[in-house]
Design a protein around this nucleic acid. Structure first.
Lengths: 227, 227
DNA sequence: TTTTAAAACTTTGTCGACAATATAGAGAGC
DNA sequence: GCTCTCTATATTGTCGACAAAGTTTTAAAA
């Protein structure tokens, strides 16, 4: 699940990752003010490393800071979700295009095998499996397959944490399991055929569908909370 | 030129901007090791603010850091340029699409007027004008016109500094002046017609052309340096 | 002469204290 | 009773010093 296998050598690294997970997974709720002293006692580190962690969280749009005032965890909103998925559509579409160009035959074979494995598990677990891990795995591999460092960095180190935050906090389970799987199949097929154009189009459409799905969920969510 | 009109309230802000400019404009050459103590004396601030500045520079891909070793200014390469422009193509294409949807009529009118003004200056200055300021202005407005915060942040606060670095350090003057202007005209026309699809296609093509132009320049550049 | 290991040194990572800015509260004036 | 100002308090921004990790130098052994 922590699909980046990021190496945390320094103390600031570890604190950043901890804090990030606590935010993404809702243990620190959206909109909360982040007090540096409070955090430094909670995480048992000095304010300096907390500040560095917060700076990194700003870089991936998980917190916002106003000078001399402080940092707050971002708040989730339908507009934010819309905009996030627009960027995903754009970047991951390009990633699929580049993956069709740059992935090795071996990598493509591995990807197909991954889908097969997920399909098996899905059958076993009664369709409830292919919701989180499988999807993330799939998208992550294609992003890596683009072999584009900027793309990889912006998506994996940046936006994907926010994506995960929306997913977790909206309690992503639900339909769209099987259909998403089929879409993944078609995308891989296009990549295997080295059809860059089609790979991009299919990926964009896939994310567009995904957006609509998540958006309705968000609306239900806020409706429930509103009552 | 400093088209972001970013507000630098804190000392770290100012130092970040100074350092960034010194890197982008080549006063600190690509590949240089960034010594924290040396910088802190040069910029007359403590190591803490230097560290914060370096962290922000990492976020926009202008420096890379290895833990316990130090930070280096990135080195420019044909591959890096290619990858950078692939991301630009993707994101700015989406920006144009969204601009066609979300820009107000007034904003579009302003944009057309901007192009006209640039055209006049271009005639006066004998075609050498429309190389930097005009181009940046144009792209910046469309990015803003997308009204997508993530898009704006990734491009303006992130990748565009690297784009500028390539431009400055390759000494961007040269042809492609008039053709780029025409392409801009067509893009604005598509936006004015609210033709999202076409706006995206034209912008992507525009950046693709631009990439090819810059790439040949980079090749010449490295050839010259190699001799 | 080459290789290896240890010690000296340089650089980064972390910390606690001080300075500057913003927020909250009390009190005076209207 | 309300508003405005001034003061007190709390929080962030900045600094210099110490700790830890990496790098270079030096010297000894093969």
């Amino acid at each position: 699940m922590d699909f980046t296998s990021e190496s945390a050598v320094t103390n600031a690294d570890k604190t950043y990752i901890q804090l990030r997970n606590d935010i993404v997974e809702g243990r620190i709720t959206a909109g909360t003010k982040l007090s540096e002293v409070e955090l430094s006692t909670n995480y048992s580190v000095s304010r300096a490393v907390i500040r560095e962690a917060i700076n990194r969280l700003m870089a991936c749009h998980l917190v916002e800071r106003k000078a001399n005032v402080g940092a707050r965890v971002v708040t989730l909103s339908p507009e934010g979700l819309e905009q996030l998925y627009q960027v995903r559509e754009s970047l991951e579409g390009m990633a699929a295009r580049l993956a069709a160009k740059h992935m090795t035959d071996q990598e493509i074979a591995d990807l197909q095998q991954l889908l097969n494995a997920h399909f098996d598990k899905q059958v076993q677990a009664g369709e409830s499996y292919y919701q989180e891990a499988g999807d993330v795995d799939f998208h992550y591999r294609i992003i890596q397959g683009s072999k584009n460092q900027h793309l990889i960095s912006v998506l994996v180190n940046g936006l994907y944490h926010l994506v995960r935050m929306y997913r977790v906090q909206l309690g992503m389970a639900g339909p769209r399991v099987t259909t998403a799987f089929d879409e993944h199949l078609h995308i891989v097929k296009a990549i295997a055929n080295r059809d860059e154009e089609l790979a991009e189009i299919l990926m964009r459409r896939h994310i567009l569908y995904s957006k609509n799905n998540v958006q309705t969920k968000l609306l239900n969510h806020s409706n429930l909370k509103g009552q």
